[in-house]
Amino acid sequence: MIPRVIALGRHGCDLLEALGRSGLFLAQSALGWPSREGLYLWLRQMHFVGVLSLAIVLVSGLFIGMVLALQGYTILIDFGAEQALGQMVALSLLRELAPVVAALLFAGRAGSALTAEIGLMKATEQLTSMEMIGVDPLRRVVAPRLWAGFVSLPLLTVGFSVVGIYGGFLVGVEWLGLFEGSYWSNMQASVDFIADVGNGMLKSLVFALVVTWIAVFQGYDLIPTSEGISRATTRTVVYSSLAVLGLDFVLTAVMFGGLS
């Protein structure tokens, strides 16, 4: 019994220590953005993190929008409320699916790549040698990636929503023969820009911070061996997914659950 309590305590201390370390790490990196050449380094990472994730996010968004419309139609038609399809598709996407699914895809596509890349730089002593040259790797390597992830994911989420709503339109209007006007007007009547689009964006910003933070920290903090890199990459995906889903519940409860 006692050894278990001790083990629990040790785990707790380790966890707190890791949280503290990663918090310091985040603060040091995030503040390090406006350096010389920083803008260009950030632009490069925007390419790797954002532009290259665009395809997978948009294709997923299209399919999810189409599936939502198809599923929603079969349910709504039972109540004779199929004209509310646009509303259903738009609200599900904006409030919930776009921020969450885009964040999960982002963790898998960009987050794991960030971890592996930084981990490889650590394993090949590139980070150490940068430090010996007198350049802080937190500023040079980590900060641009952190900021790129932070900016990219909300943009990807917008893309996801737009494409998803268009996918719903394709299925609902073009295929199932819903009246085009009611698709859009129902949507416009029920979607509030601040409450729905705005809160969805806020969620996405939070997810962007958490996923990128986990990814770069796992990369920076890993044991510099090939096994260490592969473990850290897995950890990035697992931790980010759990964090995104857990935080989503909290944020939804605060934003839409009537709690405040």
């Binding site: 730089m121 090949t124 002593e125 590139q126 150490t128």
Partner: peptide, 12 residues
């Protein structure tokens, strides 16, 4: 100071 690492540690 300059340091030469065992692996070279060139920026890839």
């Amino acid at each position: 100071m300059g340091m030469l690492f065992q692996s070279g540690a060139l920026f890839s």
